[in-house]
Design a protein around this nucleic acid. Structure first.
Lengths: 338, 338
DNA sequence: ATGAAAGCGCTAACAG
DNA sequence: CTGTTAGCGCTTTCAT
């Protein structure tokens, strides 16, 4: 890992004080804008600091002030995914209001790495830790062992431990998607979903299923495809579905990547099936793609808010906020069955 | 700003040592896996640490080790913009190889805020600082005053100071866009560009102009529109261009946001003008949008690499890496003039 | 194999 | 208004 990194010695407050001909504490006062410093003294100190190129050592300050930083950690999937980057953006904006700084890390969707990141962040004494967990098991994120550093879960409910969480109404969104397609007289509806070990995926499917049950429709069942993890496989899966002897008349894709794949498969088709995708995305309006929309930036903002409240001293039981979803009709989801 | 934040006292190494019945230093050795610790002693120390829920204090360690952290700062625009999030993702992946952690901050495209962020990062003793500068003036980012913390500029060349930089071949890309449209027999070509105070925007236009000059075409000149800063205004600008008595037959949009706006304006048109956009984007393939593509993730990766080399001791003059661009033809840029 | 003492750079507490 | 003393939690000599 880290090799022979070059250390840089910077001037210290002691040196500034010496140059200014005052004591350490006076220099500290002057530079921190504390009261009880003669104007002339303050000027001399600032000048000395300038000459030396002095800059406060935040590490030393933090240690002295109680060993806790102004950093908040975020552990999530790759920022290259617009969902995660929107969440990060929402978090960053909210934290900034309170003088806190965001540190991001990518869990590679791997529980072992995630665990290591949690340790590293706690050692770095982050004020709070926000996590979009990679998998099912969350013992490695247990709050007991971390002495009061608040955890907030995003997108996935904490499993087996009490912690604040901000979730999307996945089941409601899945049900709405199903109802929307049923309302346009579809019965043979394909569902293309990601790994079933991911709770949000299961919830979206469950919601969809409940909509089907409500009207006694079972014609969708042969068209369920799960464990589709990227756009390329989604594209292929949709192609295969359309090649069936009795193809589905509509497709429901359970996240943004899968919707992308489906759009590629449907591109140029004379008579494409209806399509509704979970997660809104840039240019969906131009493409005329109907989606189950929600606000990932709000997700991040709310999570940061919960974390801050804990940092600021809020006690009390774990809270859960659910961000609502809504169907945005743009054409693709309103195509009738053929 | 920060209010009455609750401090959390965690167990210290001294407490672990006391519980294990050994000295401070022995506990330190055991927990850090240093040699010369009796197996039985090591076991006792680890057990004590476990019981107390001990976690190393990284702040204290960093202070003792020389006051420099394992953090690298990134100051850029909002992560909600896919360009910046792709850059951040590329940086993060590269830094990780070297055990370094990314801290991100949003400059709000404001020089004053940017300046404050630089100070804050330097106080936090980041190992290196990567900046996508908001504006023209970079004195506030001067390397002299920062005592050897390496700076790397992304996307915009450092103005008036020597620092490593990773740039996009903006002029080359602009020229290629112009040549591409000329090659498809367009002469009345509109250019929709962002704020002209941004050097990359000017370079893209300059490149485009050089392509026009090379063939003696001046018919594009009435159709230049700059200071278009968001998708909404781009949409409106393109609408206005098409409403002209003699409208342009092609449009060149100088960044991803503006391309988005143009696509909205062109949506549903029976006989749309040709379109080529700077920056590639998700689903451009589905939309059939021709672009001047480059690799923002590579931009981040290279910047992180340069920074790491400096951190690892590389001396020598400032280096500049230029990331190349290429035209990706997908249909919109190949429509003939009408 | 283990321990005692010193000190990283700063701020808090208490004098003067 | 200014200075002195202590110590945050850890690693680094240097002894033992």
């Amino acid at each position: 890992m880290s090799e022979d990194l070059v250390a840089v010695r910077r001037p210290t407050l002691t040196q500034v004080a010496a140059l200014a001909g005052v004591s350490l504490k006076t220099a500290s006062r002057a530079l921190n804008g504390e009261p009880n410093v003669a104007p002339e003294t303050g000027r001399r100190v600032r000048e000395a600091a300038d000459v030396l190129g002095y800059r406060l050592n935040g590490i030393a300050r933090e240690l002295r002030r109680g060993g806790t930083s102004a950093l908040v950690g975020l552990i999530s999937g790759d920022l290259a995914n617009p969902f995660y980057s929107a969440v990060a953006s929402g978090i960053e904006r909210e934290l900034r209001q309170h003088g806190l700084q965001l540190v991001t890390a990518n869990n590679d969707e791997d529980a072992v790495r995630e665990r290591a990141l949690v340790d590293a962040f706690l050692e770095r004494r982050v004020r709070a830790l926000l996590v979009v967990p990679s998998g099912e098991q969350h013992q490695h994120l247990d709050v007991e062992g971390n002495h009061g550093v608040p955890f907030v879960f995003l997108d996935r409910a904490p499993d087996g431990l009490a912690a604040d969480a901000v979730l999307i109404d996945n089941a409601g969104g899945g049900r709405a998607a199903g109802e929307h397609l049923l309302g346009h007289r579809h019965r043979r509806i394909a569902v293309v979903a990601d790994l079933s070990r991911l709770a949000p995926q299961r919830a979206r499917i469950d919601g969809f299923v409940s909509a089907m049950r409500a009207v006694g429709n079972a014609a969708w069942e042969p068209y369920l495809r799960t464990e589709v993890h990227d756009a390329r496989r989604a594209e292929q899966t949709v192609r295969e579905l359309l090649d069936l002897r009795l193809p589905p008349t509509a497709v429901f894709t359970a996240n943004n990547r899968l919707t992308t794949g489906a759009l590629r498969a449907l591109r140029g088709l004379a008579d494409p099936p209806a399509l509704i995708g979970f997660d809104d995305f840039d240019l969906a309006d131009v493409l005329g793609t109907t989606v189950v929309a929600h606000d990932p930036m709000a997700l991040g903002r709310e999570a940061a808010r919960l974390a801050y409240e804990r940092v600021a001293g809020h006690r009390g039981p774990a809270r859960t906020i659910v961000v609502s979803t809504s169907v945005v009709a743009r054409g693709s989801g309103e195509r009738p069955p053929r």
